[in-house]
Amino acid sequence: MYAALAIGDGEPLIRWDWIARNWDDDILESLKEHLILSFTPILLGFLIALPLGIACARWRRFYPPVLAVTSVLYALPAIALFVVLVAFTGLTYTTVIIPLTLYTLSVLVPSVVDGLGSVPDHVRKSATAMGFGETRRMVQVELPIAVPVVMAGLRVATVSNISLVSVGAMIGIGGLGELFTDGLRRDFPTPLVVGIVLIIALAFVSDMVLLLIQRLLTPWERTRGASKREKEVLATGGAA
């Protein structure tokens, strides 16, 4: 196994003893930083996107300008935003958290609006006819129906954020991405493999957890497969 993985100069792709030596300090610390840097923006983004999306669904006139802004934000490279922000927030977590929050918003706002748009008109009317006020109808009827599409957006944003954090390593704040720069400096593949595997594993586990949460939130959807809109968001990243 080792021989098969060895590269040109005899350096194996993975040195297990390096992993064992550095697990407690370097790797675990980077993992912790990575979790903070990727989940803070998701939480912040979600807290902003929900009211903003509801407002856009309620007053449709706001939506086109908001959509224009989010689609430009979506196109802006993370590294560019990190670098520009260094002037304002210095080499701190904030410099990475702000662009990733904006990125989360650019994925989540359209999916909240689309999710609310997926509520059938007759359902909305029935709720009104049953005497639901606007707020109660939103909370008890429309938002639950919007959950699958919103969750699809949340999954896309989460997985993207987890891998985007590593780009922050170019300015020295990158969680597991710092293993990459370390590997380059020393021309040593082990930290790279560890970083890549952990990031993919983290993304995969987070995706599964979100999927599980979605199942728990919408027990009535369990027998049904993913809707067309959900699949679209997952496939295209919600970019419109």
């Binding site: 792709l13 999954r155 891998s163 780009v167 390593a169 990158g174 493999v193 993919i200």
Partner: peptide, 19 residues
């Protein structure tokens, strides 16, 4: 599509350079 989003490009790039 989802798997590609999880791939850390910087790591992949550096690994490709080293290997």
């Amino acid at each position: 599509a989802n798997a590609a989003r999880a791939l850390p490009t910087l790591g992949l790039l550096i690994l490709a350079v080293i290997l």
